[in-house]
Simulated scan of single mutants.
Amino acid sequence: MIYSYIGITVLWVFLYCYIIVASIDFGAGFFTVHAKITKQDKKINHIIARYLNPVWEVTNVFFVFFFVGMVGFFPDTAKYFGTVLLVPASVALLLLSIRGAFYAFENYGPDTKLPWLIMYGLAGLFIPGSLATVLTISEGGYITGKESHLDLNWTELLLSPYAWAVVFLAIVSVLYISSGFLTYYASKAKDTEAYKLLRYWFLFWGPPMIAISLFVFLSLRVQNKHHFEVAVTHYWWMFLLSFIFFVIAMILTLIKKYHGIAFIMVMFQMAFAFFGYGMSKLPYILDPYIKLNQSVTNPSMAITLIVVFIFALLLLIPSLILLMRLFIFDTSYVRGKK
């Protein structure tokens, strides 16, 4: 059914937008804590604060739309994922609450306490790790029992090399994406001290991300051989383009030029890898329980959801661009003049 493919494409776009925006936010939190502990906070915290102040409240909007849309388009996901992901989802919700509480104390409290700052920074790494569990479980092999009583095989999950590879990839990708954007942000602000430190982090986290990505691929061959073969046979070109964009971003950063273009290359890199993964996984959403064409909602509901979510994209993305133009990319704001 064409509606199912349109629906999953729209949802994947929402999830991709969330990954980019949230990664910058989560990584910035970790860098704030790291700088505080290593006594480098005076170099970069003002840069990070100027980015986070106008953006943090809208970060989770894309994720909420994705979650609601997934259940709306594919109702069976609520039954399967809702049962087996109760613990990981609860952990992610708790960590999101910690970050929200930190922002409240930061904005309205008299001072930021180091324990709160540490919890805030670590939560930004643990959230993508816990959410990445969804992608791991969707490959199959971790759910036991019948439809009436589903359960998650925790032993299999915790001992799985693929599961841990995905968690580490999520964490390292957050640090890579965030440092890439913040390097551009510091260069635009003409803040030399912050730029040197953030550029170092971006160059540092790039190679580990590629190494872990390769390990995820190799471990996927063991976890889900069919998915691996489809990805390598039909979508290899998308992963090759992703690597080419990574190389371009690294080269531009090494020569200290065109950091805005470098971050665009990072976005292309993540887009081709993310959509290549998603396309090679189809028709399964949860292997082998949920297939795209068999689990989609009725046509009238699907059409309604597609229209609503496309309009939401057309509203959210320009709004985010406007927010960035008014604050994040405004020269006076970036340089701390307003």
Rank of each mutant, 00 (worst) to 15 (best):
V222E: 10
K79E: 11
F31C: 03
W56P: 10
I48H: 04
W236Q: 09
T297E: 09
D41W: 02
R199T: 06
S242Y: 08
F67I: 15
D41Y: 04
H149F: 11
P288K: 09
F263T: 02
N224E: 09
V21I: 14
W205P: 00
L159W: 12
K281M: 08
P161M: 01
S319E: 03
S130M: 13
W116S: 08
S187V: 08
V68Y: 06
Y176V: 06
I20W: 05
F215L: 09
F26L: 08
Q40G: 03
Y258M: 14
R325D: 10
G82Y: 00
K36A: 13
V134Y: 12
V33Y: 06
V64E: 02
V68I: 13
P54M: 06
A78F: 15
E106V: 05
F31K: 04
K225H: 13
L252E: 03
C17L: 13
E156M: 14
I255H: 09
S130I: 05
D330I: 10
F275T: 10
F243W: 15
G29M: 06
L286K: 03
M70F: 11
K256E: 10
D287N: 12
V10C: 01
S187K: 13
K190Y: 06
I285C: 00
G121D: 08
F181D: 00
Y3A: 10
I143M: 01
D76T: 07
G206S: 09
L117Y: 07
W116G: 01
L323V: 00
V21N: 08
R325F: 11
Y284S: 11
V13S: 03
G276N: 07
S332V: 13
A189C: 05
I255M: 10
L220Y: 03
L182E: 01
T297N: 13
G140V: 08
P299S: 07
H46F: 15
K338D: 12
V61F: 10
L175P: 04
V247N: 06
A35S: 13
A35M: 04
L95G: 02
L94K: 04
R335K: 15
S319H: 09
V55R: 12
M119Q: 10
Y176W: 15
L169I: 10
V230G: 00
P110R: 12
Q40L: 10
G140Q: 06
M279E: 06
P54Q: 07
L214M: 15
F327W: 13
L86G: 02
